[in-house]
């Protein structure tokens, strides 16, 4: 029995008076690629942000490779994030959290900021370019001038640059044309993660089906193994059968 990469127990979190996640439990083992599916506003992004400590407050335990990175925290948004990230969690946030004034190359390099990865950034950059070949031509361009799909590639590529064991990818397909998003998710699912793990939050279930080991549904801040329920088909209310 190996230690799981991520073990979440009784996690609640939210922003100010709003509670988004309710007593959540989740375990992710090495080598797993997990899809997280749910409608807008049901806590997918909040779960990923809570793991790296970016929500308003949180309560409950998050064990990363057996070490506690969660715990009770009521304020100080993002204060612990850098130290959590440096332990080996890479987050590609929702939308474009890229650095608009830096070139694509610098944006990618900034992902390799933590730890010893800075020295091997060239090799890492080459491997990211293998995953996203369109970026090769854009390396010198300023990131602020890229198109939506390209920005998303930079954002995900930046997460891949780091020496992480857990990759969190938030809504890779959001706001992209279907063709581009299929390519992006397919590329994500083909990356060799070795003994690491990856969580992909996604609204679009068909994009993930068959590509990931496990799909979890998320509904109203709670995890459901039943994906259909999370996607909004309220089950027909059958008569009580006891």
């Amino acid at each position: 029995m190996t230690t799981p990469i991520l073990e979440i127990q009784g996690l609640s979190s939210g922003y100010g008076p709003v509670r988004v996640l309710h007593d959540l439990n989740l375990t992710i083992n090495p080598g797993e690629r997990v899809g997280l599916v749910g409608l807008n506003g049901h806590g997918k992004t909040t779960l990923l942000s809570t793991i790296v400590g970016l929500t308003g407050w949180q309560d409950g335990s998050i064990l990363f490779k057996g070490e506690e990175i969660g715990g009770r925290r009521t304020h100080g948004v993002g204060r612990k994030t850098p130290s959590i990230v440096r332990r080996g969690i890479a987050l590609a946030p929702q939308g474009d959290a890229i650095f608009p004034g830096l070139s694509v190359r610098e944006n990618l390099d900034s992902g390799a900021y933590s730890g010893v990865t800075w020295r091997s950034r060239k090799r890492r950059r080459d491997s990211v370019l293998e995953v996203f070949p369109p970026l090769t031509k854009l390396l010198g361009q300023t990131a602020g001038t890229l198109s939506g799909g390209e920005r998303r590639m930079v954002s995900v590529g930046r997460a891949l640059m780091s020496d992480a064991t857990l990759y969190l990818v938030d809504e890779p397909s959001l706001g992209l044309a279907p063709k581009i998003s299929i390519g992006l998710v397919a590329a994500l699912c083909e990356i060799d993660i070795g003994e690491g793990a990856m969580i992909i939050a996604e609204q679009n279930l068909p994009l993930l089906e068959g590509r990931v080991e496990r799909v979890l549904g998320m509904h109203a801040g709670e995890l459901k193994l039943d994906v259909g329920e999370a996607l909004g088909d309220i089950p027909p209310s059958a008569a009580v059968s006891l």
Partner: peptide, 25 residues
């Protein structure tokens, strides 16, 4: 340099910088 890149990154997007492991403090 690496530190310089870190500072410029923080100027542009503090949240993004935190996500790649740059401590604002």
């Amino acid at each position: 340099s690496r530190r310089g890149l870190q500072m410029r990154a923080m100027m542009m997007n503090p949240l993004g910088a935190a996500v790649v492991g740059v401590s604002v403090r």
